[in-house]
């Protein structure tokens, strides 16, 4: 047996962990070998020193103190709620303890939803789609006064459908109408939009759309469309819109209403470009073989004398002279 093995067995022997046969074997070895006996005695002393160094049993007062501290800590631990318990406690607090507050809050929420429904939802209900068959042309006027929006493909219309939104005010559901530019309902809607919509860009697009249809001979001159164009030409705040309306009216069959409108522009429009356009339109009538009546001649005479624009004075005088 080597020394290392001996020391291991000696320690197990001293710890009383050695089996009987090994104990006897070790004891015999110790008795036979002086050097091993001395080594064993050294370990034995150390072992005794260790066991005699055992710490004193704990003091009873210390035990009582730590027990008190522990139970206090455990009670605190028990008082801590798990997240699930916290949520349940919160709900219990709301619906059991503060039920009046929660009932009031819920009532307020329901009242809010109810009021919101009547104020917003009903007025913003989706438009009802319709088509020309379900729109009575004779009653378009009633729609016309209620046009809420027009969607025209942009840039300048060359095809596709125009969508008009009728109604949608006073709690009624709006009617969405889609159709091509040569659709009579669309044309009336466009003309009406010309006089009722505020957006100059939309009005210009509207006029151009009408003009494009006239050029394609798709439009049947409609008195209401003509009236709208005349109104726009005479009263629109935007000179570009007035000018475009005039350009479209030129393509309409000439009549007294159009004549009076041209004369009105020539006499009253503050924009010289518009007045030039009006006098050119009258000159164009003459080129087309129409006769200029006295009413036109009178206005032309007056403009030849006192228009602030040299060009208009000269043009008016020239026209009068040609007529004579």
């Amino acid at each position: 047996m080597n020394k290392e093995k001996f020391l291991e067995l000696a320690q197990l022997y001293l710890m009383n962990e050695l089996e009987d046969d090994k104990r006897i074997e070790l004891e015999n070895l110790i008795m036979e070998n002086d050097e091993l006996r001395k080594e064993f005695e050294s370990y034995k002393q150390m072992h005794e020193a260790f066991t005699s160094n055992r710490p004193a049993e704990i003091d009873e007062k210390l035990l009582v103190a730590v027990r008190n501290d522990l139970m206090r800590s455990v009670r605190n631990e028990a008082a801590k709620l798990t997240p699930k318990e916290k949520i349940l406690e919160w709900l219990k607090n709301i619906f059991v303890v503060n039920y009046k507050l929660s009932f009031g809050s819920l009532t307020l929420v329901f009242v809010g939803i109810f009021v919101g429904y009547f104020l917003f939802y009903r007025s913003s209900s989706l438009p009802v789609a319709t088509n020309s068959k379900s729109v009575d042309l004779d009653n378009v006027q009633s729609y016309e006064t209620k046009i809420s929006n027009i969607k025209i493909p942009n840039p300048f219309f060359e095809g596709g459908d125009i969508e008009v939104l009728f109604g949608g005010v006073g709690g009624t559901s709006p009617i969405s109408y889609k159709g091509s530019a040569d659709d009579p309902v669309i044309q009336r809607a466009l003309a009406t939009a010309l006089t009722t919509q505020q957006n100059p860009g939309l009005k210009l697009l509207t006029v151009n759309t009408i003009a494009s249809q006239i050029e394609l001979d798709r439009i049947i001159p409609d008195p209401k469309v003509k009236a709208a164009l005349i109104t726009a030409m005479k009263t629109d705040k935007n000179p570009a819109v007035r000018k475009e309306a005039l350009n479209v009216l030129v393509k309409f069959p000439f009549d007294q209403e159009i004549r009076d409108a041209y004369l009105y522009v020539l006499s009253n429009d503050g924009n010289s470009g518009l007045r030039v356009a009006a006098i050119n339109a009258l000159a164009n009538l003459k080129v087309q073989g129409a006769s200029l009546d006295d009413k036109i001649i009178n206005v032309l005479n007056r403009k030849a004398e006192n228009d602030e624009s040299d060009f208009i004075r000269l043009r008016a005088a020239s026209l009068v002279k040609e007529v004579k």
Binding site: L62, A65, V66, E77
Partner: peptide, 11 residues
């Protein structure tokens, strides 16, 4: 130290 360990063990 024993008190600290005791507390920690039983918690």
């Amino acid at each position: 130290d024993a008190k600290d360990i005791y507390q920690e063990v039983f918690i």
